[in-house]
Design a protein around this nucleic acid. Structure first.
Lengths: 229, 229
DNA sequence: CCCAAGGTTGACCGGCGAGTCAAGAATGCC
DNA sequence: GGCATTCTTGACTCGCCGGTCAACCTTGGG
């Protein structure tokens, strides 16, 4: 009667691998480190994975489709400036929270990919993520310029890169935290900085009127009770 | 009579090393690749450097003090709002151009450090550079809030991270270019975005008055002829 | 206890790349 | 050309680490 395989071995190995990869990246991580941390032999590793790279791939693959889905946002075109401003800011805010939440939930894998840096399989995912964000941001921006929501003197390529760079830093800060920070507050600070930097004077007037009439604009919902520390 | 040592060997080796390290980072670069590219033997490498790491260090060390100097900026305190706004924007703009120029001149070494990612000796320099920029930015921001130039509802830590993240992306774009881009135009876009995002209403009025009287404010010097492409 | 089936192990193999050093090459004087 | 001095070379050594596999271990049935 055959011996029963240890049902926890693969789980322990995946956990250990995720942890070791996050510390050292793929190239500098040793299979022996992973197996020691998982509490199994080196040979047992190869019962579950074809190679070290395969282990890395198994961890990453389940992550890829989620990443792509996260970035797909429907485009909405409005004809009215009031509608445009409000809709635009709402959409931006919702999208922010969605992405930051995703990054927080998958912070271990982000750390894995970031620790490896150049030359790591799937390291291009970070660059792709960044490029995709910049591309989406630029698309939104061109629309907003066309709708007279954003100033028409902005270079959408440069500014899209600046904004996605800013969010990139925010994500890096987020995933480096041991405890979950106030994502909504962070998002508000970013949104406030960029909308003020981008809006036309007309669009700002629309927004200001919304505020003074007590309407549910994003800035009216800002945490007034929060003071900088 | 002893044979004369080849005076160009070390120069060729340093050049080749810089180039190979920029492509592959430290860990994935092979001494054999460097020596082949330099056109000397593998043994000759060790006549000039104790080890591969030593070669890397020799390239980086000359770079370190320049990097630190580049970030030291004198703090100037003004008492008058008009003076503050103008002085502040001028200083920001000058500092931008100085840093971007430095990054362009040292783009090969930046590429070297970026290509390695985590685990590379001196890779912390990039993190330190980023942290230093954020720290300096935050210091400036606190001053500007105190002088009623910036809004007092900004979280200076979060916003400083956002801004330095944005410049980080700009630098990465800059050093990835084969030909020198229009640094002043890029800097203008960033400055325009962030000043509009940060200034108090009073400070904006000061700035607008300056513009309408034809004074030499930064925005009055903006490249009006430039349209987005 | 013996047995068959399958699981697990860690000493071992072999490729790779950093570093070594004795042999060969280059130089200019006599 | 011979010689002494120094430079340069590239085959070689050695250690690291991913991956292998025969020996040993575990399991439950008879």
């Amino acid at each position: 009667m055959p011996r029963i395989a240890d049902p926890r071995a693969k789980i322990e190995l995946l956990r250990a691998a995720e942890s070791v990869f996050a510390e050292h990246g793929l190239n500098a991580s040793k299979v022996e480190h992973i197996t020691t941390r998982a509490g199994v032999s080196k040979g047992a590793f190869y019962l579950h994975f074809e190679s070290k790279d395969d282990c890395w791939r198994q961890i990453i693959e389940g992550f890829v489709a989620k990443l792509v889905n996260c970035l797909d946002v429907p485009h909405v075109a409005g004809a009215d400036l009031v509608e445009n401003v409000t809709e635009h800011l709402d959409r931006w805010h919702r999208h922010d929270l969605e992405i930051l939440e995703f990054c927080w939930q998958n912070r271990a894998i982000f750390r894995m990919v970031l620790a490896g840096g150049g030359g790591t399989p799937y390291a291009y995912l970070i660059d792709e993520f960044a490029a995709r964000v910049a591309e989406t941001t630029e698309g939104w921006m061109r629309q907003a310029v066309g709708a007279n929501v954003y100033r028409d003197d902005i270079d959408t390529t440069v500014v899209a890169a600046l904004i996605s760079g800013a969010y990139d830093r925010m994500v890096r800060e987020l995933i480096s935290r041991p405890a979950r920070p106030d994502i909504a507050a962070w998002s508000y600070q970013a949104l406030s900085l960029f909308t003020r930097g981008l809006l036309t004077d007309e669009a700002r007037l629309v927004l200001d009127r919304k505020v003074s009439t007590g309407a549910a604009a994003v800035e009216a919902r800002s945490p007034r009770a929060r003071r900088k520390s």
